[in-house]
Structure formats: structure tokens, C-alpha cells
Design a protein around this nucleic acid. Structure first.
Length: 265
DNA sequence: CTGGGGAAGGGGCCC
DNA sequence: TGGGCCCCTTCCCCA
């Protein structure tokens, strides 16, 4: 299941072709320009339907209790193996440095006492919970059990693509992928977010702040380090549902299944 | 063909 | 509400 359950994806899951938009935004000020919505003229990419978002709590399923420790985002068949049951094992999965991943592997932090009505997620404050629960509102499949009449329609549409969002903030974030306001001063490549640009700048500077504790190999991206760590693990994270063969990356598993190795699947 | 690294996209969460 | 960061995912390329 894609993580982007906020978005209705009508087309392919491949990256959008921004070449046309890039040509439209060829002149963008350097040095971290501000992201702004192209509101000039009457050609705003924002389509705002002032329909109030009504969150019908009565139409929602009963709260989950107790909270399941199983991650709800893991795919079932082709998803990664659940290795979280042995966090201190020698797989090296949890040995990377810093960040939230170094937190204790407790599935529910003790200060998280507000449970989502739709999934097993918990939050430390009512506001955080209510904000999260809004993500279940739009034509999302995660609440398919709720009658469609009880669900509010997505209110924010992107004019450049068919995506729909439940909040203006989410739409603004998405629009940045069209406007690409962050431009590399070295090569001129544009990005949607400053931190993406920072990661890109590392390709110019050669900075690799994430290093493997097993082989001292360094990486510019934490996710790439995480993928690399899988190569040190004897039991890979992603398992074929048919032949039980494991892979270090989901993409490799997809290649495996697409190659027809396991036609029964 | 397979495995792995590099680069990038994008939604979620916290502050 | 927005910035920053996290995490997952995907594509491309190369050995």
C-alpha cells in the first residue's frame, strides 16, 4: 500500500513529468527562494471548494483497543519481514546512529495515550490525534467500511494534476512539487523542498554524513545507509510470499516477482 | 540477470 | 501553519 493514502492516484505511480513545469519556472531566484502559490492572474493552481470539512465522528468505527503493535503500513504479501520482534538482534538493523530510529523499540510510547479510531497509531495530544484522523477522511481506502455518504469530499484539488487533498497545507506541499522553488546554485536543478536540495548539494560537495558501523562505508542519504545495512544482514527484510526468498530491497523483490520466478504468486 | 549504490520524490509527524 | 526531519519508495545505473 502506498504511504500516500492522502492522495487519490489516478495514473501511474511513476514520477510525474515536470519538464513542462520546469520550463515554466525556468527563472527562479537562487538561495532558497520561498515557496509560494502561483496565485497571479486567475490561473491559480488552487481550486478551493469552500465546502466545510465535516468530520462525522458518529460514522466512524469504534476505537481500537488495545493498540496493535503491528505496523499498519506494512504490505502483507510482498512486504518486509517483521524483524522488530528482536530489536537487539545481531542483524544490525537498529544499530544506525541518531534520529528517532534509535529510540527504544516500544510499539506504543508511554506518553502516547490518544488512540486513532481507524488505525493503531497513538498520539501524545488530542490535537495531534485529531489532525491525524483527518487524514482518514478523503475517499481513502482505509475507511472503506464507512458508507461513502458519510464521508466528506476532498476539498482541495490541484489544477496541474488530478490529485486531491483534504487540507490546504497538504495541497500547498504538493504544489511545491510543481513549482520546484528550491534551486541548486551549482547546477540549477530545482527541488520541491529545501532538505531535498540539501541532499542534492551533497552530491556536489561529496559530503557523506551517514556511515555504516560495520564497514565504515559512508552515505549521503540515511535511507541509502539503511538499505545498505540490509546487505550486512543474513535475513533480508523483504521476503517473497511464494518461495520465501528474501531480499534487501523491495525493488529487488519486485524484480524477483516480475521475473516470473514464482509464477504461482 | 542480479545485487547494490546513488539520487530523488513525497506523505507523515514533531516542534 | 510552516519548517525540518523521518521514513518509505522508486528509478537509474553499474559491477
Amino acid at each position: 500500500m502506498p504511504r500516500s493514502f492522502l492522495v487519490k492516484k489516478y495514473f501511474t505511480n511513476k514520477r510525474p513529468n515536470y519538464s513542462e513545469l520546469e520550463s515554466q519556472n525556468a527563472v527562479i531566484p537562487e538561495c532558497y527562494p520561498l515557496a509560494e502559490l502561483p496565485m497571479r492572474d486567475n490561473s491559480s493552481v488552487l481550486t478551493y471548494y469552500p465546502t466545510a470539512l465535516v468530520f462525522n465522528m458518529d460514522a466512524l468505527p469504534a476505537p481500537l483497543s488495545p493498540v496493535s503493535p503491528v505496523s499498519p503500513t506494512r504490505p502483507s504479501l510482498t512486504g518486509p519481514l517483521d524483524l522488530s520482534s528482536s530489536p537487539s538482534s545481531s542483524s544490525g538493523e537498529d544499530e544506525e546512529e541518531g534520529g528517532r530510529t534509535s529510540d527504544p523499540p516500544s510499539p506504543v510510547p508511554p506518553h502516547h495515550v490518544y488512540h486513532c479510531l481507524h488505525c493503531s497509531k497513538t498520539y501524545s495530544s488530542p490535537s495531534a490525534l485529531s489532525r491525524h484522523q483527518l487524514t482518514h477522511c478523503p475517499g481513502g481506502s482505509e475507511i472503506s467500511s464507512i458508507p461513502s455518504q458519510a464521508l466528506p469530499r476532498p476539498a482541495f484539488h490541484c489544477k496541474n494534476c488530478p490529485k486531491e487533498y483534504t487540507s490546504l497545507g497538504a495541497l500547498k506541499m504538493h504544489i511545491r512539487s510543481h513549482t520546484l522553488p528550491c534551486v541548486c546554485t551549482t547546477c540549477g536543478k530545482a527541488f520541491s523542498r529545501p532538505w531535498l536540495l540539501r541532499g542534492h548539494i551533497r552530491t556536489h560537495t561529496g559530503e557523506r554524513p551517514f556511515s555504516c558501523q560495520h564497514c565504515n562505508r559512508a552515505f549521503a542519504d540515511r535511507s541509502n545507509l539503511r538499505a545498505h545495512m540490509q546487505t550486512h544482514s543474513e535475513v533480508k527484510k523483504y521476503q517473497c510470499g511464494s518461495c520465501s526468498r528474501t531480499f534487501s530491497r523491495m525493488s529487488l523483490l519486485h524484480k524477483h516477482t516480475a521475473s516470473g520466478c514464482c509464477p504461482a504468486s
